[in-house]
């Protein structure tokens, strides 16, 4: 089993921004423990959902050749609860992307309501400053992760680089 906390991508602009959604349902066991009689989606899992959205955005920018690892949670501020039946949307944007790392900003919305602001940093671990070696195989971007992008166009890399920022 893979630890997947987004259901699918709904928008993807290569190297720039991506949006995914997650449907929250009482069929998910953790909601019965968090908390009994008051099910709300744990905030840490929403950070994970954002890490997956922004992480795949970062990975795709280099054609999934790098192993992209969450390195730092720069900011995670929550404004409201997410409950069973809600569909939440993760909007992630790349702020900086270099050979060795990336930083992203992001927001979670439920409908029009702002749920959270989450800014993250990712490391391309094969280029880590300590010179440590990792297995050749890309254990980060497995087929399960890539399947989240089925049916979504990532846009043309070259044209998106020249395009002006939409927002």
């Amino acid at each position: 089993m893979r630890w997947i906390w987004i259901d699918k991508f709904v928008e993807f602009e290569s190297g720039k921004r991506a949006s995914s959604i997650k449907n929250v349902t009482l069929a998910e066991e953790y909601l019965h423990d968090h908390f009994p009689g008051f099910p709300v989606m744990p905030e840490c899992l929403m950070i994970e959902g954002m890490a997956q959205t922004a992480g795949i955005l970062t990975g795709e920018a280099k054609d999934f050749q790098e192993k992209v690892i969450l390195a730092k949670v720069n900011k995670a501020v929550f404004f409201d609860y997410v409950c069973p039946g809600d569909t939440i949307r993760y909007d992630a944007k790349i702020e900086m992307l270099t050979d060795e790392a990336a930083s992203t900003t992001g927001e979670i919305h439920c409908g029009e309501k702002l749920i959270a602001e989450i800014d993250l940093m990712f490391s391309h671990i094969d280029r880590n400053l300590g010179g440590k070696k990792f297995p050749k195989d890309n254990f980060v971007f497995t087929d399960t992760f890539k399947s989240l992008m089925r049916g979504i166009s990532t846009g043309d890399k070259d044209s998106s680089k020249n395009a002006t920022e939409a927002d």
Partner: peptide, 29 residues
Amino acid sequence: ESIDFLDIVFRLEKVFEIKIPREELFPAE
């Protein structure tokens, strides 16, 4: 910590509108 150095470099580049090549501000590796 190590990742913070990259974070700092990213933020400095943005705030001061400069380019900071790898290993220039914090050469170590």
